[in-house]
Every structure is written in structure tokens, then in C-alpha cells.
Design a protein around this nucleic acid. Structure first.
Length: 489
RNA sequence: GCCCCCAUGGACUAACGGUUAGGUCACCACUCUUUCAAGGUGGCAGUGGCGGUUCGAUUCCGCCUGGGGGCACCA
């Protein structure tokens, strides 16, 4: 049977790193098995689900280059408006659009006496929980509505109570499954209380919707976060109640914050899209995320995406949680950046260049400037800072004001003026010649020249920079610098 | 309170029960260089604790400790 896996986020809040990795592992697994990767939106939380969040999920997956075979897509119509549509034979792919399925299957369980109507109010349940906490008893529904007579039900309904459907958890049962990453895991059904599968509003709860959808969508492998381990026995019970085939389960370890606690926005955990915005390449992010919880036998670090697809396997996924480390992400970003041409980097950073106002300059110039600073780019967001001074009308000299020998620069200016072939090599030859003549160490000349041209103590290769700026600009900047530091022209 | 999962340097990880416990990031030093990066070389640093099984445990078992997840008409 061919592999079908799904990524099923709930569209509440932003798209975070943990979800991104879950999506990635599902996708890698599907690709590795030449199977299908499905995106399903679990929006049964009517209160917290937002369209904004759906967009961030879709954009996040797009950023990573993860394409889904079935699921929702954002499509632009003729008027240019965006619409969210579904594509695939197992749709719809939004749980809110699948309500009929859930109520139909809940009815089936009701008929088979594997579920029952429960009329308890929120307040009654809350009270029950409080009492259980006080008495230090296991928390959970006590089954008081399990055996209601027809008459009692009528009465409660007459009081205006809207019932929910609860699943009847069989008692004294050992539930065991083989987790593809952890091996055998088992639970005792006595620890699981009768849980709600259909709310009073008729919408399904997570565990129920998830099982119904995974079954209907013929999902073969459920790959999700470790936080779902304790949901698994409940879901298995539902599969068994319907005599449905149970898929494989694989639970991925959590991703933790630097202090070993849960990643949370409050503590500065960033959404995936923020990393894109900062200029982390998708190649680097995918590579890094893949390494966060998975590895090859030889601990290989650098991967291109196709290689990842080829080598990925759930059996080599780790069981222990990992901490997200931006250092290594940055390092990988540098490694992947090295593989890209200046042309490609230009394309990918265009948005950032535009935001910095640099898009007013000719593309050729920008590409050359990027070429000049290419090996210093750590993330695309660095580019405007790295190349901005090359285009500036005014140089800010405050970093280099301590220089006190303008006469060197004034002489040097004359040298530059007389270079007819203003190319890096020739400029270097002439400047070195000048150093020799004046009996100056190269450093005494090179540094001031850099300061005059850039206002900084660091930057690209000096003579390449001169060439890029051109003779006129070089001379103008030298004059300006001399003026600023108080020398005479 | 109950249930479940996890445990190798600061971080990510590797190691059929036999390795001087390996690699990568970070850090430190040196080196290359006109600067800053990048690069090169070297270094610091680890099997949570206690028992057991075994000729031999990072590896298998138990307990402890620590961390995490769950016990909702959230997902």
C-alpha cells in the first residue's frame, strides 16, 4: 500500500518551529516512500481558529519548499483576490467543512452502544474536577450519564440541556501500539475516562475528528509531536470501535527553548516566518530542522534537500527532546549561502533590498556589490548593511575620526587621479608603489584609504571596492574625509 | 494525585555488549590576510546517581533523581 501521511495543524496562533519540523518530517517521509503528503486544517476550535493563522501555515510551508499533494491552496482569481480552495480526492480538507461525517459516525457509535449522550453542564463538570483534585483522585469524567434511562434523558432535555456525545471507554483493557520511533508503548484503559467526541454544538473534538479523518483519508502513518502520545490510546479505542484499520504511529520528540523549557512566544520563540524574514535560506532551515531530532550514522551535518529525502528514515529519529540553537542554524545558513551565486542571492534578497531603499540602483550594480561582500553574508538581512555604504551619498565617519594624517590621503588622492585604467589590480599596483616611494608600511596607507572610502574599519577587499566605486567617487570621498577630520585640501 | 515519554560535553548528535567515547555548532588559541568575515590547524569539554546481569556496560534490567508531555465540550 502506498504511503499517505498528513500534516494536520490547528490554525490557532502563529506557525512555530515545532510544527514546521513535524510538517517537514512528514514530507520527507512521504517523499522518501514516494507517497502522498496531505495538508489538513484542524479548525474544530471555533473560538481560536483564524484565517490569518491558516495563511501563516501555508506561507510557512511554502517558505520551506514543502508542497502538499492534497489540501487547501490559496488561489488568486481574475480580480486578484485571494481565495482558499481545496484540492484532492479526499476532501474537504477543513474539519469545519466535514461536520456531516463526524455526526454520522457518532450516531453509529451511539447505535452500537459504544457511546452515549451526556447532559452534564460545564459547571457540574467543573465541580466534579474540583472535588477530584481535593480528594487527590484521578481526574476525569465519572460516567454518571452512562446509564441514563430514556425517561431521565427526556427530563434533562426538557430542562433545556444540550447533550454531548461521550465515548464509552471499555474498562480493564491494555492498549498497546508500536511507535515507529519509540517502540512499544502501552496504556491501561482504566486510566482513560469517557471522553467527549461530539460537542453540544455538534462539532467534533480533536480525538474523534482526527480518527475519522485519518481513516477516511486513508492515512497510513500518523507522524506527529510527542504531546500526542497520550491521545493515541483514545484514538486506538475509536478505531477499534469501528473495526477500522489502525495506522502506524510515530511520535517526534519536542523541541525545547534554550533553557530546556517549552518553546513559547512569550520567551522570544519566533515564528517560522520571522526566520524567513530575517533571511535564513529555506535550504538552511530545512537542513537544520532535519537535524533537530534526526541524524545519520556518520553524523553528517550539511545536507541538500534531495539528499535529505533520500536518507530520511523514522527509525533514526531520536527519542529525546532537542533544544533549538540559532548558532548552528546560522552556520548552516552560511554554508548554504556559499553554494549560491551572487545572482541567486540577489533574487532572494530583492525584497530586503527594496525595503532598504536600495532597489533604486541598477540591478547590475547591486549584483556586483553582493558579489563583493558575498562571503560575509550570514543571512540575507545583513545585505543592506553590508553594501549600503557603497551607494551612499554621504559617508558617516564617526567610527574612524581618530585618524590624524590627512596628508597621506591627499598624496594618495593624486596617485588615484592619475590612474587611467581604474581596475583593482592596477590600483593595487599603484598604491603599493606609492607606499614604497613614501617609505610607508602598507597598513599605514591601506587602512586610512578604507576609512575614507567606507567610514568603517571593515569591509570588502580594498581595491575591489575602489574599482566598484570608481575614480570620481573615491576622490570625492577622500576629499570629504580629509575635510571632516580637519585637514586642509 | 494518576498515566505516559525522555536522559552522551554548553547545543545537535554517533558508537552489533569490547572505541584512547567519534563528528558538527559554540567557545578559546594559533594561522592566513590590507580590514572584517570566511578558511586552515590545534585545544577545552560528555555517558545524571545507585544497584543488578555480564569476563566486560554509553549500550540490557530495576530503583532514584531530573526534565518533558498528558489527564478539557483545546488541538
Amino acid at each position: 500500500m502506498s504511503v499517505r501521511v498528513r500534516f494536520a495543524p490547528s490554525p490557532t496562533g502563529y506557525f512555530h518551529i515545532g510544527s514546521a519540523r513535524t510538517a517537514l518530517y512528514n514530507w520527507l517521509y512521504a517523499k522518501n516512500h514516494r507517497g502522498k503528503f496531505i495538508l489538513r486544517i484542524e479548525d474544530t476550535d471555533e473560538v481560536r481558529s483564524t484565517v490569518h493563522s491558516i495563511r501563516s501555515i501555508i506561507n510557512g510551508l511554502k517558505y520551506l519548499g514543502i508542497k502538499w499533494d492534497e489540501g487547501p491552496f490559496i488561489i488568486k482569481n481574475e480580480r486578484g483576490d485571494e481565495q482558499i480552495l481545496s484540492r484532492g480526492d479526499y476532501g474537504p480538507y477543513f474539519q469545519t467543512l466535514r461536520k456531516n461525517f463526524y455526526s454520522k459516525f457518532a450516531d453509529e457509535l451511539l447505535k452500537k452502544d459504544l457511546a452515549y449522550l451526556c447532559f452534564c453542564t460545564q459547571e457540574e463538570l467543573e465541580e466534579m474536577r474540583k472535588k477530584q483534585m481535593k480528594e487527590k483522585k484521578p481526574i476525569g469524567y465519572d460516567g454518571r450519564c452512562r446509564n441514563l434511562s430514556v425517561k431521565e434523558r427526556e427530563k434533562l432535555r426538557a430542562e433545556g440541556r444540550q447533550p454531548v456525545v461521550r465515548f464509552k471507554v471499555p474498562q480493564g483493557k491494555k492498549i498497546t501500539f508500536v511507535d515507529l520511533v519509540r517502540g512499544e508503548i502501552s496504556f491501561n484503559s482504566d486510566d482513560i475516562k469517557d471522553f467527549v467526541i461530539l460537542r453540544a454544538t455538534g462539532s467534533p473534538t480533536y480525538n474523534f475528528a482526527c480518527v475519522v479523518d485519518d481513516h477516511l483519508m486513508e492515512i497510513t502513518d500518523v507522524i506527529r509531536g510527542e504531546d500526542h502520545i497520550s491521545n493515541t490510546p483514545k484514538q486506538i479505542l475509536i478505531y477499534e470501535a469501528f473495526s477500522w484499520e489502525i495506522p502506524n504511529f510515530a511520535h517526534l520528540p519536542m523541541i525545547l527553548d534554550v533553557d530546556g523549557s517549552r518553546l513559547s512566544k512569550r520567551k522570544g520563540a519566533r515564528s517560522l516566518l520571522e526566520y524567513e524574514d530575517e533571511g535564513f535560506l529555506k535550504e538552511a532551515m530545512v537542513n537544520y530542522l532535519a537535524l533537530l531530532g534526526w541524524g545519520t550514522q556518520d553524523s553528517q551535518n550539511f545536507f541538500e534537500i534531495p539528499e535529505l529525502i533520500e536518507k530520511f528514515s523514522l527509525s533514526r529519529v531520536n527519542t529525546s527532546p532537542a533544544i533549538f540553537d540559532e548558532n548552528k542554524l546560522l552556520w548552516l545558513n552560511i554554508q548554504h549561502l556559499k553554494k549560491l551565486s551572487a545572482e541567486e542571492i540577489f533574487k532572494r534578497s530583492y525584497k530586503i533590498l527594496k525595503e532598504a531603499g536600495l532597489d533604486v540602483y541598477p540591478e547590475g550594480f547591486l549584483k556586483k556589490a553582493i558579489e563583493l561582500e558575498k562571503e560575509k553574508i550570514k543571512k540575507l538581512r545583513d545585505i543592506p548593511v553590508l553594501i549600503g555604504f557603497l551607494f551612499a551619498d554621504e559617508i558617516d565617519y564617526k567610527e574612524v575620526l581618530e585618524f590624524e594624517k590627512p596628508e597621506i590621503l591627499l598624496k594618495l588622492k593624486e596617485i588615484l587621479k592619475n590612474i587611467s585604467d581604474f581596475k583593482a589590480q592596477e590600483i593595487e599596483r599603484k598604491v603599493r608603489e606609492f607606499c614604497k616611494e613614501q617609505n610607508l608600511r602598507t597598513k599605514e596607507v591601506f587602512h586610512p584609504l578604507r576609512w575614507a572610502l567606507s567610514g568603517r574599519k571593515w569591509g570588502p577587499s580594498l581595491f575591489a571596492m575602489c574599482e566598484f566605486l570608481g575614480k570620481e567617487v573615491c576622490i570625492k570621498r577622500i576629499e570629504k574625509f580629509v575635510e571632516v577630520i580637519g585637514g586642509k585640501k
